[in-house]
Amino acid sequence: MPKTRETVLEIDLGALAHNYRYLRSKVPENVKMMGVVKAFAYGSEAGEVAHKLSELGIDYFAVAYTSEGIALREAGIKDPILVLHPQSVNFESIIEHCLELSIYSEFVLKEFIKSAEKLGIKEYPIHIKLNTGLNRLGFVEKELEMIFEALSNTKAIKIKGLFSHLAASEDWREREFTLGQIGKFRTMARLFMNALNYKPILHLCNTSGIINYPEASFDMVRSGIGLYGFTNDREIDKQLKPVGTLKTIISQIHPIEKGETIGYNRAYKAAGTMKTATLPIGHADGINRQYGNERAGVFVNGQFAPIIGNVCMDMLMIDITGITCDEGDEVIIFGGPQPATKFAEKGKTISYELITGISQRVKRVIKPE
């Protein structure tokens, strides 16, 4: 693609397709795949990503909140969409837009039954979330009888899926705990299947689960961060391609004399003569203050340039001393020579937080496959 003339997040659909095919190759052919496209498809562009994944053959989508599912429907996505963390105020909208939902507590179960019965709905598809040890959302085993009783008293809902979430599938030190979660999920799923006259879709594995515990693929796996080019394993990361590249430009170049200070609070003081460049991107765009004061840097014409001083709301400054460049030249924040994982490490965080935090005011540019 031509070099940018403004701040953009470039979304590479070819990289997305590569990652999808790689992850799909890790599970049996008869296992379905759910693409997690919550949080604007991990900070990229949910509509474009979902359309590409649908074209590639994805079976399901997952979002966190109802509004995200509605946005996908409005973008023309016809595939099943699971809302992972629905709230009761949105139940009628969920039904209106044919979204499936996670039922994770007695309150949510009973409130949704009321909403579905009020609308005269029969056998609305739900997924029961089981808590196998993450202790975030979901039913524990002693609550299952309550679910069975509720099911016996209504025709408004039908369990389409049973699922849980692994807490530490990327960490081999927690292998015993993870195997315990898998075992607990099997046990709870068996209790459901004994109580039902049909078999729901069972899904447990996240991206790291797909890689490390393929024996727990069950009927469907879910991938979020892996589709966007990252896992928690550097060796596996080498097999993937990051989807997003964050680029900006040099707005202005400044010659700085020894002893001069740069930016708010005079946080940086020049030890000698130098050149700085100001970039039109800041913490309101997702490049937070934790990356300033030489903790992280960017690439200008293939050369590393540290961020100096405090990151501002809409701008940041870099040291370009010794780098041949001009105002208007392209700058790569992450992607290319510096994956988001490495940039995030400099700010003592993870790729998930960095890429999902890129502001929606940053223009998204789609690079087709």
Rank of each mutant, 00 (worst) to 15 (best):
G209L: 05
L162A: 08
E235L: 11
D12K: 00
Y264G: 08
A270T: 04
G322S: 12
K122G: 01
I332V: 15
N301K: 14
C312M: 12
V83R: 03
G57A: 11
Y291K: 08
P280C: 04
Q252C: 14
M34P: 04
F218S: 00
N288D: 11
S115T: 13
S359A: 15
T324M: 12
H97T: 03
K367S: 01
E327Q: 13
Y228F: 15
H85Q: 06
K269M: 12
Y104D: 13
L204W: 01
A216W: 04
E149V: 09
D79V: 08
D219I: 05
P368Q: 05
W172R: 12
A340N: 05
A71K: 08
Q239N: 15
R73N: 10
D319V: 10
Y291M: 07
E145G: 07
I70W: 04
Q239L: 13
I320G: 00
L119Y: 08
T324F: 11
A41R: 01
V63T: 14
M1R: 06
K346C: 14
E369F: 07
L82H: 10
D314N: 14
G14D: 07
I287D: 00
V27S: 06
A62I: 02
F91L: 14
M146D: 14
P80E: 05
F91N: 05
F343E: 06
K38A: 05
E74L: 11
K114D: 12
R73T: 09
A156Q: 06
W172G: 01
Q239K: 15
T4S: 04
K348M: 09
V331G: 00
L246M: 07
